[in-house]
Design a protein around this nucleic acid. Structure first.
Lengths: 332, 332
DNA sequence: ATGCATTGTGCACACGATTACACAAACGGT
DNA sequence: ACCGTTTGTGTAATCGTGTGCACAATGCAT
């Protein structure tokens, strides 16, 4: 690699240096194309010497294929999503696909952000965030056919979806808590507008209804530890509930801390607390949370599966269903 | 937005529809270019109707400017880095820059991954990971001038760097622990080969040396909770240490849990435990960690500042220094 | 020696935008 | 009425690759 030239060398310049045409340079970098192996070796040697690599932007323009994948997420800071994102990024990288992250939380104009990403001709879109509507995603990425993590089967044939079902596991958990003698249940949502949140809540509400119970209180947080802490103080003190089902694990940890610290109540005897997601942190010794857990590996396997179907250009709507399981800790 | 056409409409096609040339289309989308405002309005209307947006790949090829930024990180799952990444992503999005994430942990060939990203003509590179050498980053992104988060001043003029200094804060923390009567110190590294780890360790080693002490044991983990837990059991049981300085906050939480659960020892009376990074989770009530903390906002401000200097094409090497502070919890 | 299939290479165009240049129209000042 | 400036638009080249087509060279079978 000679020199620190600011400018990148082009295929035409390299062609001159190697005494061939620029078409031959291109062929040297395409695994199966008609080119003499001696020529290829010589070109690759010269290329290495001058630090040449084909320009992926130009290639994308020509190919109509960018190898970029947009990941639409709420945030990367929140561990509840980060584990899955991490897995997916690894799987993409192994396929030589590059992830572009779009963070929707705290961002004023999510639609504009998605439109911006769509101008980069991304090959795939994976929507994790519950803050964008399915219809918006379809409209903006109408050439890409997004993959959406939903919680209900989608009828829209311009979308592939992963459906997650936690009804059965929620029933198991509620069963245990009711048998433990708890009576006043609260649900602590992560957002007040998300369809994902509504469906998760429904799993638990149905399980309660089956036993002649219902949520006495409905509270709203923002998926953060602090909001879990703050809301739990109110729920326990003002509303006297003895069971809190939380929208994710991080809020559940906040709620548990509030119970213990502010009100001196312990789980699971005085109060039951349940999380959702099943992140690694929930199993830490200091947390030991009871949570409605999703198998992250299976989940990302499903996403990759859908991406591969898109690549193979199999037509028609696709949907994969996953089931949650109860993971028992000492909080319920 | 009429129709669900699979193919995206091009500037030339839109030109025909609007009765102008494709050059005029382009001008309609460039804020300051000579074009009649009536024409522009008409074009924008037709564009909206047909869902046209200029192709960013083609634009990048012409402009020599991709508006892509590569973020080289260890992982996005680990909260110790995620907070900063989150902040940076927001700042980039506000500038209409799109982040491409490169995860180095667990990835067999980091260099190949970086080379792949470099073919996309990224405008900027920010290296957070301590798993890639500075020289590799400079070689691969020689046209981009990377921004590197280092812990020492860099002499290389093809790099901008952010230097972080925690010597003083480490001294404060060691002072307190020594005055509390602790005698046998261990350092628990996050990796065994990282220059960042070596420098962090040096801050504490120097503070100990000043008081006639030294680390009795050196252990190695992998920045994870589990490794913190496992190593701490050994350190406490086999080596009988009474103070553990950890490479990051997550390992410190693991160590604290191990002390409490496996050996029945409590902080800070029986044993002192110190983290590093100062993540939000460290301040949670259930953790309440004493940690060597960095101001994340100031840190990302510095990164953005360097990016802007690059954009303004100011020449010469750039370096910004930040100082850590001690954040006191109940673990030391 | 002739015919045909195969291999290796160059030419030229396409991908979809931006932009320097040219030029016509409109406008204002004397 | 004439000239110089400003304004708006089209033409054509450019960014760096990939690839269909043409064509020469080679190998092989008759």
């Amino acid at each position: 690699m000679s020199g620190m030239s600011r400018r990148r060398i082009t295929s035409k310049e390299l062609a001159k240096l190697a005494g061939v045409s620029s078409a031959t340079i291109s062929r040297a970098f395409s695994p199966d194309s008609r080119i003499g192996s001696a020529t290829r070796d010589r070109i690759l040697a010269v290329a290495r010497e001058h630090g040449y690599q084909p320009n992926a932007i130009a290639r994308s323009l020509n190919n109509q294929r960018s190898r970029l994948v947009a990941l639409v997420v709420n945030a990367i800071g929140n561990p509840c999503e980060a584990e899955e994102q991490q897995l997916l990024v690894h799987r993409l990288q192994a396929r030589q696909l590059l992830p572009i992250i779009l963070c929707c939380a705290d961002h004023s104009d999510r639609l504009q952000l998605m439109r911006l990403a769509s101008t980069y001709q991304v090959d795939h879109v994976v929507v994790f965030s519950d803050m964008v509507s399915m219809q918006d995603a379809v409209d903006i990425f109408h050439t890409t056919k997004p993959i959406i993590v939903s919680f209900e089967p989608l009828e829209n044939e311009n979308v592939s979806s992963i459906r997650i079902d936690g009804a059965e596991a929620a029933d198991e958990i509620i069963d245990k808590i009711v048998r433990d003698g708890k009576k006043r249940f609260a649900y602590l949502s992560g957002t007040n507008s998300s369809w994902i949140d509504k469906l998760r809540r429904k799993w638990f509400a149905d399980a309660l209804a089956k036993r002649g119970l219902a949520f006495e209180v409905q509270a709203f947080g923002d998926y953060s530890y602090d909001s879990g802490f703050k809301e739990a103080v109110l729920l326990l003190h003002r509303d006297k509930v003895d069971a809190i089902i939380c929208g994710n694990d991080v809020m559940a940890i906040g709620a548990r801390d509030a119970a213990r610290r502010v009100l001196g109540k312990n789980t699971p005897d005085d109060i039951a607390i349940v999380g959702q997601d099943g992140i690694a942190m929930a199993a830490w010794d200091c947390n030991d949370l009871t949570t409605l857990s999703l198998d992250h590996v299976a989940f990302i396997d499903a996403v990759v599966e859908l991406i591969e179907r898109h690549d193979a250009e199999i037509e028609g709507p696709h949907s994969i269903t996953l089931t949650c399981t109860a993971r028992w800790g000492s909080t319920a």
